[in-house]
Amino acid sequence: MSQQTKKGHFPWKHIIGFLISIALTLVAFATALWTDWSSSTIFIIILIFAVIQAALQLVMFMHMTEGEDGGLISGNTLFGFFIAVVIIVGTYWLMTSGHMHMSM
């Protein structure tokens, strides 16, 4: 991608990304509201959809991997996701097990 990209060049990448995002949103919505699966099954399915959609935005809309620092930026963001998982899973685990669980 350079400045020389000719004017009016059709933004296929963005349109495809947008359509997939809408599809994922609708499918997640349908899964959550119109199925009678167990809530943990639903959660896992729609969480996977969410992660795919997030990755799509990062790569297709935000151009995470481009530029001379693409590797650095991607690495930093992935470390961010690692931290996110640690904080969320760790906190949830600690706050809902052990004595916490009994007090609820």
Partner: peptide
């Protein structure tokens, strides 16, 4: 420009941690 873009991505890393903490608290409660 390049430094600012890389710096901002780094800041977004911090934002990931910030929102994760909010999500973690939401789930816990």
């Amino acid at each position: 420009g390049r430094l600012n873009i890389t710096g901002f991505w780094t800041f977004l890393g911090a934002e990931i941690a910030l929102f994760s903490t909010l999500f973690a608290s939401y789930f816990a409660l």
